[in-house]
Amino acid sequence: MILTPQVSGAAGVNADAGAGVGAAVTDPLLVTEAVTRRYGYRRVFADVTFSLRRGEVLALLGPNGAGKTTLLRVLAGLLRPSGGSVTRNGTVGLVAHNSMAYDALTARENLAFAAKLWGIVDAARVEELLDRLGLVRWQDQRVATFSRGMTQRLAIARALIHQPDILLLDEPFHSLDDPGVADVVRLLGELVSEGRGRGRGRAIVLVTHQLERLVQLATSVGYLVHGTLVGPEPMDDRSVETIAARYRGLLNRA
């Protein structure tokens, strides 16, 4: 049972009773405790510890192969940690490298299928997301005909279908054009602060190399370098140069 920590069953998801609602508003939504993950005999990362509350955006920086994607999959519950623990006090939405979409289905059908699996009966939810991600014009086209940017929008819509408390985003700006990036940045800004029930706001883990977007959105930065997580460090100074210099410094440290 890989996914059970955050939900008790399909029925619990649709109601606005994520497990986090009962907890105090300031309790962390996502807590990792010395998380380690191996791939075969290779240790991808070790000792990843952080906690994330509502309204917080943790940005992750790290070179290719540092295990950012693996970490997101562990956080999402798709992979089990090899050591340590991950606690999720809410539902999780994941935007991964792959779109998780079926090419032969239309955008609407893809979303409706996801909604069905999440036990969401409200048909308006699909409409709302199509509208919010600017996909209405293409909603009845097959994903096979989509550009990368449109596919990315669909992937984000899919991740939001069950109004997750925790959003995990792997390069969400990838292959979006400038208006697309602006749209998604605005959307993420809204998502962080909006929410359901008493506990307002979401927690976001954002993997991106686009430092301009990062400084716009992040409340803290973690650096996944040399097999472990440095930070998260608070964003005292929202400047691209500061972050870039810090990142370079960590990379060059043996």
Partner: peptide
Amino acid sequence: LERENQAIDGMLLTPV
């Protein structure tokens, strides 16, 4: 079909 865009993950993420 599920491997194509890693669509199986979309199912595995749900509580199904």
